[in-house]
Computed example of a mutant assay.
Amino acid sequence: MIQTSDTKFEALLEKHHLKKTGPRLKVLSMLAAKNVATSQPDLESVLDDIDRVTLYRILNAFEEKGIIHKVFDLNGTANYAMCSSNCEENHHHDEHLHFNCTICNNVYCLDELNLPALNLPNGFKPTGFTLYATGVCPKCNKLAAKKAS
């Protein structure tokens, strides 16, 4: 049986003991469709039928349940991206590189990179970490090359 996005998102909400509401399904659909992390203001501009407080509560609930994770852009704005299936309630496994493009300001989650082991001094017990890189994304590199030629 082929699972549509809606049934996949409904199953995700059910797994995390969240009610299957229209606004929650819309937010999941928007975040899953993006290849970059997305800020609350960006979501508000697209989801104009969901008020700011409701969207804030949805994002908070999703983050607490391990459905999405929060990453900050170069301006300090919180952006949200879908978590991997390894994330759990109150314990994220989003230990991947977050790439901030200095031109378009998009934040990319680069899950496919193998990161080195984190060797901390005795007495330190990590519960997670965030790794950022800044530079120019492929899209902006391509646009710059077109302008230069």
Results as ranks from 00 to 15, higher is better:
Met1Val: 05
Gln3Val: 11
Thr4Phe: 06
Thr7Lys: 15
Phe9Thr: 02
Glu10Lys: 15
Glu10Phe: 07
Leu12Thr: 08
Leu12Gln: 11
Leu13Cys: 10
Glu14Gln: 13
Lys15Ala: 02
Lys15Asp: 01
Leu18Met: 14
Lys19Ser: 02
Lys20Met: 01
Gly22Val: 03
Pro23Arg: 11
Leu25Gly: 02
Met30Ile: 07
Ala32Pro: 00
Ala32Asp: 06
Ala33Asp: 10
Val36Gly: 01
Ser39His: 07
Gln40Glu: 08
Leu43Thr: 11
Val46Tyr: 09
Asp48Pro: 01
Ile50Met: 04
Asp51His: 15
Arg57Pro: 00
Phe62Leu: 02
Lys65Asp: 02
Ile67Asp: 05
Ile67Cys: 08
Ile68Gln: 06
Lys70Trp: 00
Leu74Thr: 13
Asn75Cys: 01
Ala78Cys: 06
Ala78Asn: 06
Asn79Pro: 01
Tyr80Trp: 13
Ala81Ser: 12
Cys83Ser: 14
Ser85Trp: 01
Asn100Gly: 05
Cys101Ile: 10
Thr102Asp: 07
Ile103Cys: 04
Cys104Arg: 14
Val107Ala: 11
Tyr108Asn: 09
Leu110Arg: 15
Asp111Arg: 15
Ala117Phe: 03
Ala117Glu: 11
Leu118Arg: 14
Asn119Pro: 00
Leu120Ile: 04
Leu120Cys: 11
Pro126Arg: 15
Thr127Lys: 15
Gly128Ser: 11
Gly128His: 10
Gly128Phe: 07
Phe129Glu: 03
Tyr132Ser: 07
Leu143Gln: 12
Ala144Asp: 04
Ala144His: 08
